[in-house]
Design a binder for these strands. Structure first.
Lengths: 175, 175
DNA sequence: TTGCTCCTCACGTCACGTGAGGTGGC
DNA sequence: TTGCTCCTCACGTCACGTGAGGTGGC
């Protein structure tokens, strides 16, 4: 029977983590000492071992609780779901990386040319998740609310007068 | 001058996001209508554009606030820092993926052999970040507190009696 | 007596989302 | 009058970390 501190140290966890697990009912030590200290049994430790393992896989505590009471099928499902979520999360972080790379490169370009070019701008928007439709809506709104600023912006991208005019007309087009 | 809802829609943000930015002083609309509606000016929108961009790069709002008042050097630093943090985060998620892959493969193996083998177990522990020292400490504690369970566990990994005895002796060795 | 570990609240975190209850504008 | 948008609180989220104030054990 181990106290909180010892149990925590053995698993490389903090005491407050174990207190938290107790408070949410995920892992309540099966005993208490005469002085009301939490005492973790071998079975508690086996349970904690599993919790620790699934946490290392990034499963939320609520899912872990479910897995521990339900069977292997649930575990497999949760792990497969987590695998997909991880793919997603990594994808998002990757796009943040690409965006930052673009921004840093754009700043280098900006040092040379004093301005962003259209390709860089568009790539930045795309990297942040903007679709063609989003961009269209963005132009339309920009043109509708602040046409001068819109023109100013388009020119700042290095577009020539006809190109600016074309985009603005397209932005005013209904639908 | 745009209201909150319109501004939010234009940027694909939620109203509550803008209310939050206002509450923490990151972006306070420069005007209010007669009926106390928030009114965002063109300058506000330009500021929001930058905030949105940096958020898409994953910068925390506190850092964005700093970047907006400080200069390009700060921006560059923050972006480079963020790039390193992203490397780290992606690395962690990748190791979670590897761990899950191991767990799923282990379950397949388990279906065939009714047990985990040592290599799989060790790879799982490694994937979850355990070092040799951690493992050694783990064995020592296990042996110290629950020698029978320790033996049981070692045997469950498919180790033969001499191997189990060797590991247990090593676990009792001082230091 | 001095540390060390333990106990139980209770608040803070980060970036919002979600009501609750109520008031203007078309 | 009916929607729609707006307003200001205030609480919830996720997994803990960090005191605050106090009590056992070696």
């Amino acid at each position: 029977m181990l106290t909180v501190g010892r149990t925590a140290r053995r698993f490389g966890l903090s005491r407050s983590t174990l207190l938290y697990y107790d408070s949410i009912g995920l892992l309540s030590p099966s005993g208490r000492s005469s002085s009301n200290y939490r005492l973790y049994s071998e079975e508690d430790l086996r349970r904690l071992e599993l919790i620790h393992l699934y946490r290392a896989a990034g499963l939320p505590l609520a899912d872990i609780a479910r897995v521990l009471t339900a069977g292997r099928t649930t575990l497999r499902e949760q792990l497969e779901t987590r695998l997909r979520v991880l793919d997603d999360e990594i994808g998002k972080l990757r796009s943040q990386q690409r965006l930052i790379a673009d921004l840093l490169r754009a700043r280098v370009a900006l040092r040379r040319t004093r301005t962003l070019d259209k390709a860089t701008w568009v790539s930045i928007l795309r990297a942040s998740g903007m679709t063609d439709d989003d961009m269209r809506r963005w132009h339309v709104e920009f043109e509708r609310v602040a046409p001068e600023a819109h023109r100013d912006f388009l020119e700042s991208l290095g577009l020539d007068a006809p190109a600016v005019a074309r985009i603005r007309a397209w932005s005013r087009d209904d639908r």
